[in-house]
Design a protein around this nucleic acid. Structure first.
Length: 195
DNA sequence: CGGATGATCAACT
DNA sequence: GTTGATCATCCGC
């Protein structure tokens, strides 16, 4: 698998979020293909960076291509990848688990349904053992590894999930028809043709 | 099936 | 003191 070029994230955050669908994310050999993302930036009321730089969101204003990891609801973690525009990042919401399934199962539960192992930002972080220790860490070097697509997926866009303030902008992206999504996309989604 | 609920904490006001 | 870019479980259809 070919590693993602360093300038991959140095673009408009919506484009990066779209183009991350189909790429492979691994940590210490555990991971799979990204099938769902969301984009955030400073102009977005739903974004942690909306009110400017703070101790928590500092990574969103740090090096491009590094991780922004935060704790949510006191129980879970969420993984973002920082993009070119300061205060912008892509939330990784779901992957198709392909590598290190045994370790994923050990962390997520032996009886966990296959499709629920990494379907959601919190579940994904538990499966890949991502926590605050990885906040600010580069995605382009161990323990992380990002790889290019092996095929061009059909991509859909829709409104984001779980936000209270943000408008219903189409900033959630997913692999059309994938069984590994955290939730299906609305019926009247916008089909995105590309390439 | 779908909706409601409690868990639990770092950051923010 | 309040608030989540969530999840697993419980309850009623």
């Amino acid at each position: 698998m070919k590693p993602l070029p360093p300038d991959f994230y140095m673009r408009d955050v919506d484009l990066v979020a779209r183009d991350l669908i189909g790429t492979t994310l691994q940590i210490d050999g555990v991971g799979g293909v990204i099938v769902e993302t969301e984009s955030y930036d400073m102009a977005d009321p739903a974004s942690h960076s909306f009110a400017g730089r703070t101790p928590r969101n500092a990574a969103m204003f740090g090096p491009v291509g590094h991780a922004y990891v935060y704790r949510i609801y006191g129980l879970h973690h969420c993984l973002n990848i920082v993009c070119g525009e300061p205060g912008s990042a892509v939330l990784i919401r779901a992957i198709e688990p392909l590598y290190g399934i045994e370790r994923i199962r050990a962390r997520r539960g032996l009886a966990m349904r296959e499709r629920d192992l990494c379907a959601g930002p919190g579940r994904l972080c538990e499966a890949l053992e991502i926590d605050l220790a990885l906040d600010g860490v580069s995605l382009s070097a161990p323990p992380f590894e990002m790889a290019e697509r092996s095929e061009t997926p059909p991509i859909v866009a829709g409104p984001r999930i779980g936000i209270t303030r943000g408008a219903e902008r189409m900033r959630r992206f997913g692999w059309k028809g994938s069984p590994w999504l955290s939730r299906p996309f609305p019926k009247n989604h916008t089909a995105m043709q590309q390439y």
